[in-house]
Amino acid sequence: MNITEKDIDHLAELSNFSLSEAEKTSLRQDLQNIIGYISQLDELDVSGVEPTYQVFEMENIWREDKILPQEADREALLNLAPAMTDNQIKVPKVL
């Protein structure tokens, strides 16, 4: 399939990137090639085959509903935030 500029803009939006025109051009070429390669799956017949999402055969892994101390507390976590006020993470106004 052919990757258009519009496709790149859409994928950039889904990826939350703000890309330069130069980046868009090179990414468009790269994605074109990569998608061209992975599209070889078209020739493979998988009718009646179940998908595998995990190669982990176990089930029902869960924990008890008990409050436990955590490896990092509020201070340790919020100290990582680029901007913080009143023990909350600060971001530009959400419109």
Partner: peptide
Amino acid sequence: RSDGFMPENKRRIMIGNFV
């Protein structure tokens, strides 16, 4: 995200969002 990721990161993220 655009400054922070390398070109290959961006390729894979965009391919992932495509598929």
